[in-house]
Structures are given as C-alpha cells and as structure tokens.
C-alpha cells in the first residue's frame, strides 16, 4: 500500500491549557472516506481544527504528515494550499465580502493564477444548482443572514469549487432539516465521484452517512481514539450509542 495521504502520529492537543486530545494516531489514504464519531465534547472538532491549523489549538506532541509534508507549524493558508479543507461547524459571517468574490479570491490565491471569469461563473452556477442554492446567494455577503442550511451548503459549495485533497466536514449535518441533509449529502457524493480526494466526516449522527460510501470509522471519546472499524461500526453505534465506549474511555483515564 502506498503512503497514506494523512498520517497522524501520537497527537496530543490542548486548548487554553487543557489537554483535549490524547495520543491520537490514524491514517487516511487517497480516495478514502473516514467517519469520526463520538459524543458531544469528545474532541472530534479538535481534530479538525488542529489539522486545519486553528491557532487556538496547540499541539503538545505528535506529528501530522499530509501529502508527505509535516503540518505542525504551518499557517492555515499554507495547509489550504497543500490541499486541506475544512467545512466549518459554524461558518463565519463576513459583511461586505460576497460569496462569489470570496471563492474567486480563494481559488486565485491557491492556484496563483488569474481566473477565467466566464468559466468560473459557469462552474459556480452549476455547482450551486447541484446544491439547490439560489444563484442570488453568489452576490450576497458571505454567510450574512444565511440560514443554518444555507451556510452549510455554502461550505460544500466552497469545497467543490476548491477541489481539495482532504476535506474535513465538521458537523456539517448538525442543525439541518431532512432535505438539507439530503442536498449536502449529494454534494459530498459529487466530491467522492469526481475527485481523488479523501474525506473525514465528523458527526455524531448517522443520518448523513446513510447514502454515502464509507471506508473507515473511528470512535473518539474523552479525547481518546477508542475504536476503529469499517462502515458496520456506524450501524452498531446507531443502535447502541456510545455507552460501551464511554466506559472504555473511563478505564483509560484511570
């Protein structure tokens, strides 16, 4: 097997001085879809934010190798340029910056090349249509006044437009109604189909996973990686919840 796209080794992370993640190791290969599950507050989002380089998260020890490059110490924009993407749990509102010009700027900065406006607009429109987004949103201020569902769709729109190597979807399904979950899930399928990239889907709800191909599942509880498995693990958790793992994590902590 070729080297993994993402290699996390013995990663421990703190936020405001509190250690949140303990000794996490996992590999993601090109083209794979991984699911990261766990109860609220388990540290799932911490993994996503740490991978993306959020300055509020401090790596205590361990390494993150992405496409052969050590990410520790790299700023978020360099990680993005290396092919990392995160769909935010709470996308930020930026008044005065339109969704379209934001995406255009991001593509230009990532590729370092000028953009062919006509092609770009066509692709943006097509992608918005796929996500059932009103094209008028392209001209609206980034996330300002967007509903929860529209914000998440706008994240998936950015993902599809930027076509990264690894997408971390941080609770992209949270707070969405059934139709929106379906739309977002279609967007993810589109990425799986057309891109060679990999996905790390962070969720505590199996709903979004029902129609997606999943390769690996990881369970995280109290900052520990307590179980690894295939897609069957999702079903098991849907039925029995995290109780068994919570007990296990309690043992580790003691």
């Amino acid at each position: 097997m070729s080297a993994a796209l993402l290699q996390i080794r013995n990663l421990s992370v703190s936020v405001e001085g509190n250690e949140i993640l303990h000794d996490i190791s996992l590999d993601v290969h090109k083209g794979e879809t991984h699911v990261l599950m766990g109860p609220n507050g388990a540290g799932k989002s911490t993994i996503g934010n740490t991978l993306m380089g959020n300055p509020q998260y401090h790596v205590i020890s361990g390494s993150i190798l992405f496409d052969g490059q050590e990410l520790n110490g790299l700023s978020p924009d360099k990680r993005a340029k290396a092919g990392m993407f995160m769909s935010f749990q709470n996308p930020i509102e930026v008044p005065g910056l339109s969704l379209e010009s934001f995406i255009r700027n991001a593509i230009r900065q990532q590729t370092g090349k000028p953009i062919r406006i006509f092609q770009f607009k066509k692709r943006l429109e097509d992608t918005m249509r796929l996500l059932n987004m009103d094209p008028a949103y392209a001209d609206r201020d980034l996330n300002v006044g967007f509903s929860g569902g529209e914000k998440k769709k706008a994240e998936i729109l950015q993902m599809l437009m930027l076509d990264p190597k690894l997408c971390i979807l941080d609770e992209t399904d949270s707070g969405l109604d059934v139709d929106a979950v379906h739309t977002v899930s279609n967007g993810i399928k589109e990425y799986q189909k057309n891109s060679e990239g990999a996905l790390m889907i962070i969720t505590h709800n199996a709903k979004i996973l029902e129609s997606l191909k999943v390769d690996r599942t990881h369970v995280i509880v109290r900052g520990h990686l307590v179980a690894d498995g295939g897609p069957e693990l999702i079903e098991k958790i849907s039925e029995h919840g995290f109780e068994e793992y919570i007990a296990e994590a309690a043992d580790i902590n003691e």
Binding site: F102, Q110, Q158
Partner: peptide, 12 residues
C-alpha cells in the same frame, strides 16, 4: 474570521 478566510488559502 481571520482563521476562516485563511483556511481557504488566503494569507493573513
């Protein structure tokens, strides 16, 4: 906000 924009490849 800065982190959000940077996460899309935009410099600080």
């Amino acid at each position: 906000s800065v982190f959000y924009l940077m996460s899309r490849g935009i410099s600080e």
